[in-house]
Design a protein around this nucleic acid. Structure first.
Lengths: 229, 229
DNA sequence: AGAAACGTATGACAATTATCATATTTTTTT
DNA sequence: AAAAAAATATGATAATTGTCATACGTTTCT
């Protein structure tokens, strides 16, 4: 089993603020686990006993809307921590986490996180910084949802996916989502989403091959997002 | 000048986790200030040098959408702290704060907050808890914005206002907003909002007297919010 | 291989919402 | 108190988006 000290996640998440002793301690009690595509890490209402480190793969954070649709709030990818919010505030999670591809995750028990949080100010500042960043993004997202139309929101979602997952060798976004899932991100009906994807495709903004999507012109998509059409 | 130790705000915000010495120290360097209705506490992009304690009155947190409309993200009222996020993460604010009525606020310099945050684990846990709570609400809000229609969102906004400001003696919500401001909360055109208010009024869900709004049946509004119409 | 199930796509239509024009009312200013 | 400005209200219409029906293509299962 590999040690936390050498793990890449440490470099990019709030864990970077931990000292050697803390890392060794965590290394000893963490549990590694493989999560298959479609598997559920946790569900709305669950009480988490620790945080997940994503070593490989990605998952979506979803929330069941009152209308019965599954809304994708965001994606958590390699190098991210998952579950910080509810572990530290000691509340049940308000979102479900489902793997969008095969994952490899480590589980760090709540006690370890809290001990470091209370004992290591550098760590607590980093954790809060992470959560504040999420809060800022969430507020921005809410404004976009409220003020933009579906076309603009689709543009936003495509840019977000591109940003989060990057491109493969052919320039396609490195994640495969169903049309229904994308509709769930954008907040629209699946049929409407499909139509809009074809429209974007016809206008040469994107190229679609099955589930794979390539952004042909970031600038043009950016313009759509900003309402310049 | 009154002391922080006796201030009501202390009881309801994360400040309750501060000890006597910390409170006395803060008491000594805080600055009280009166903010008139319509005055700006800070604007998108500003770098805050401390947090505000709201002793009296309320302000709206708004964000200018790419479409040029002012979206109201939330309200901060008596007893709340304002600016924690950006003070602790040491980033510029992403929202503007504008007084919706006359306010009385205290300003606590950044250094005081950070010293306590780093030195008093109880306080840092409370602060994070507050921010986590905001994050949870923001995520929920984003989902509602994305998945609900305008009518449902108006119901949500009315319930939120009722919750946040309470009722006056006649049962009207204790805040007066322009139609444009409410439209900015809901994320719709002002004309659409006005129509929907009349519709709610005709159906007996609310009673409208000028800028004053009374919810006649919380249950019915709740049902509208949930899509039961 | 064939059937069933599912995801994707498209047409037709209805419902929702935005926009523009124009009253009407309220508030502010002079 | 009258005039001007701003906010509220309503009608007409267009644009956007959702819903239902149906067809087509893929995947899955036996």
């Amino acid at each position: 089993m590999s040690k936390c000290e050498q793990c890449i996640i440490r470099k990019f998440s709030s864990l970077r603020a931990l000292n050697k002793e803390e890392l060794i301690k965590i290394s000893g009690c963490k549990v590694s686990r493989v999560v298959k595509k479609g598997d559920i890490l946790f569900e709305e209402g669950d009480h988490l006993k620790g945080v997940f480190c994503i070593r490989e793969g990605a998952c979506k954070l979803t929330k069941l809307s009152p209308n019965g649709k599954n809304h994708i709030v965001k994606f958590i990818t390699k190098g991210d921590l998952l579950g910080q919010r509810s572990v530290i505030s000691d509340e049940s999670v308000n979102l479900s986490a489902v793997a969008v591809n095969d994952m490899e995750v480590c589980f760090i028990p709540r006690e370890e996180i809290m001990t470091s949080f209370k004992g290591n100010p550098d760590f607590s500042v980093e954790v809060v910084r992470d959560i504040c960043y999420d809060l800022k993004n969430s507020d921005d997202g809410a404004v976009n949802m409220a003020q933009k139309n579906v076309k603009q929101r689709l543009a936003d979602s495509l840019l977000y996916l591109h940003d989060t997952f990057g491109e493969d060798v052919d320039g396609f976004i490195k994640v495969q989502l169903s049309r229904e899932e994308i509709a769930g991100m954008v907040g629209t009906a699946t049929e409407s989403l499909i139509r809009m994807l074809s429209e974007f495709s016809k206008k040469g903004l994107i190229e679609v091959k099955g589930k794979r999507i390539k952004i042909t012109s970031i600038l043009k998509i950016q313009n759509v997002s900003d309402g310049i059409m």
